[in-house]
Design a protein around this nucleic acid. Structure first.
Lengths: 226, 226
DNA sequence: GCATGTGAAGCAGTTCACAGCG
DNA sequence: CGCTGTGAACTGCTTCACATGC
């Protein structure tokens, strides 16, 4: 039966949900009506036991002997991820990276709407990016409150990140996605995820330089003749 | 004594190395000569035991009763990360994100050099980005071989990612950083890391929608009066 | 017969707590 | 006396293996 909610969900499981969502969407597009945990696992580059355990946290059930109905499972996962309701996000730091992310399809795909874009450069303020006018960062708080924004994205240089972070925290933002290469200090009530481009490259380089340090990396094998 | 090499290094430890590197660099810039594991942990948003355990994997030793000498430890970590030698990377997909990343400081900071930029759009090929001329992706293999490139970055749309991935694999690339929102199929000899912008946002949104599902998230507290 | 759902076992990383040493 | 380095305990995710049920 699963746990039909309430209990704790392991973070690795949560991180895999968007992958399942994407892969199931792809199956649906190809008019596949049913998938087994093995097929789904294969398409996600993981193993079948993990898929079943993950799904069991949400009480989502397949049919024994058959597998999962693609449309139904996709709907369940999208509901879990809150893809049905639109979420506003603010982004501070409209350099090259901010521009690129603001224009990315990721926002729409994930059910997000840009509620505000901010910077401090007079040359950037007033510019229209992705249909939104860039405002001065001092206006961040009022926009967040007016539009009930609870998610912030930081794409500023490292030196400005902590300041922006505190503005967001003060404006009621409770989740921050940080692309600046710096560690943020936040109260425990605020959730931070850090994306570190340069760090990821360094990790790859480390394992190349120290192959003996690598474990059973690579799970994303198999699957090719899709 | 540590293990002075040879043994396995846990992936979470490797992921933290770039953070230590950055934070130590900052301490050095402020002319701090010594740090304790507690201070270092604080600045990294983790706990002291983790720092000591991490460093012990490399046999890097501090001084009991005192702590770690910043310059020495920084040097050790940079050596581990291979920051002394320059590494060439190729990037395929010169849309907004590719442009932004190619211009980022992360390459220099991480000891990386762009050996080639690639796309398929006639309008993009020939453009100069970050001082490099964008070439057609069919030239990727020859550039990789000529310049002994072993790291590739994929910033194409999802639909093109697998093709590019196979070109890279065929050209001798053994580590790939994938920004495309898709699961790549690769032989086990190739290491892939996936950065998923939209997925990260969805994870944040999930925990906001399901606070009861959150565990003891947040470790990056404390530290403010730096 | 076949694939799910799940307790139980296994394994990995984190945290504890303290011996060891400057 | 303080802080490192580390075995041991702990916690938590993964994997196994099988009972369950279509």
């Amino acid at each position: 039966m699963g746990e039909r909610f309430g209990r704790r969900v392991p973070e690795p499981t949560v991180v895999r949900l968007p992958v399942y969502q994407r892969v199931l969407h792809e199956f649906a597009r190809k008019s596949v009506s049913t998938v087994s945990s093995a097929e789904l696992a294969d398409a996600c580059g993981i193993n079948a036991a993990k898929v079943r355990k993950d799904l069991s946290h949400f009480g989502t059930y397949g049919t024994r002997g058959t597998g999962y109905e693609v449309d139904y499972l996709l709907g369940q996962i999208q509901r879990e991820l809150g893809l049905d309701l639109e979420r506003g996000v603010v982004m501070a730091g409209m350099g090259h990276l901010g521009h690129a992310l603001a224009r990315s399809e990721g926002f729409v795909a994930g059910g997000f709407r840009i509620a505000g874009l901010f910077d401090v450069e007079p040359g950037t303020i007033g510019e229209i990016v992705a249909g939104i006018r860039v405002s001065h960062v001092t206006e961040l708080a009022s926009v967040c409150r007016q539009e009930h924004v609870s998610i912030g994205i930081i794409t500023t240089p490292a030196a400005a990140a902590q300041d922006v972070c505190e503005r967001m925290a003060g404006a009621g933002v409770s989740a921050i996605l940080n692309f600046a290469p710096t560690v943020l200090s936040v109260p425990p009530s605020i959730q931070v995820r850090h994306v570190d481009f340069s760090g990821e490259l360094q990790v790859l380089a480390f394992y190349q330089a120290h192959p003996e340090a690598a474990a059973g990396r690579s799970e994303a094998v198999a699957r090719l003749g899709s």
